[in-house]
């Protein structure tokens, strides 16, 4: 659609601008403010320059949290994206069962995040949970509050359970938009199922798949509630991801300076990925001819 130039459109944007400025810019400036100052308490601040940033860059704690975060995001992407595509390929194309699948698959997406935590907290317990009980009955030593591997496995399976449907629904939407003629042409060429996927379906859903990957990356990169409820970041610090660590630092220990420096670096990463996301979105729009 060709848009007309109209500077007066700014008046329509103004309410959003004011509201978001109030709820985003003011807090961010507070964070910037703290990140370059130190305090003795009683609201006395003095200039600290980039000291906090230097401290955070040398902080083992932050690098460890970042490492765990990247490992977590990487693992869940490696599972959810292929699994999501696979599920989407197996979904019924239309009719009653398509609706049933859509409704049931959307269900985990709409559960409050803390309840997702609660569900898995209960489900994984050896005494009262189906999963924990079954594993214990099979003779597997499983305790997500004590054991490093069990905690990680629980957090990852929980995330797969929670979000694979989103990838599947996006891929499904992409698959639905492929015209039938493509499949008929493939049939005439006697293309194998794999070739159909590789040369027709995959290229056609690449756009939505990029959206899915970036969304999952962003959301997993700031995950807080679910692991907080299930493992509380433990055992030890083994499931303390960036957001959990940041909240501990800022609201638990009230280390304003380091927390603020941490926040800003965290935010810059998000900004970078957002830019990639935006570029992908606008390229997709151009391709669709909007």
């Amino acid at each position: 659609m060709n848009k007309t130039v109209n500077q007066k459109a700014w008046f329509l944007i103004l309410p959003v601008l004011l509201l978001v400025a109030f709820s985003a810019v003011i807090p961010l400036m507070t964070v910037v403010n703290y990140s370059v100052q130190d305090t003795f308490g009683q609201n006395q601040f003095f200039w600290a320059g980039l000291d906090w940033f230097r401290e955070m860059m040398a902080s083992e704690r932050m690098w460890d949290a970042l490492g765990r975060q990247i490992a977590f995001s990487g693992i869940i992407l490696a599972i959810e994206i292929p699994l999501g595509i696979f599920v989407a390929l197996n979904m019924p194309k239309k009719g009653f069962w398509a609706s049933v699948c859509l409704v049931l698959m959307s269900l985990p997406l709409l559960i409050p995040w803390n309840v997702v935590g609660t569900i898995w907290q209960i489900f994984g317990r050896v005494d009262i949970g189906l999963l924990g009980y079954t594993l214990a009955a099979l003779g597997i030593d499983y305790n997500y509050t004590q054991d490093f591997y069990a905690a990680w496995a629980t957090v990852i399976v929980m995330d797969v359970w929670h979000w694979t449907s989103l990838v599947a629904l996006l891929a499904y939407a992409g698959l639905q938009s492929i015209p039938d003629a493509y499949y008929q042409a493939a049939k005439i060429d006697q293309a194998s199922r794999w070739k159909v996927f590789r040369f027709i379906e995959l290229p056609k859903i690449m756009g939505v798949l990029m959206i899915a990957i970036l969304l999952r990356f962003m959301d997993s990169f700031m995950i807080y509630t679910e692991p907080f409820v299930v493992t509380g970041g433990g055992p030890g610090n083994s499931t303390t991801f960036l957001s959990i660590d940041l909240v501990k630092m800022a609201l638990g220990q009230f280390d304003l300076g380091p927390a603020a420096a941490f926040s800003i670096m965290y935010y810059l990463v998000i900004l970078l990925v957002s830019y990639v996301f935006y570029t992908v979105m606008t390229n997709l729009d151009k391709r669709d001819g909007h």
Binding site: V20, L28, M218, S243, Y266, V273, S274
Partner: peptide
């Protein structure tokens, strides 16, 4: 970017 911003960054401010 605000949709993507981590709530943890904004909690304290």
């Amino acid at each position: 970017t605000n949709r993507m911003a981590p709530p943890a960054v904004f909690a304290l401010p």
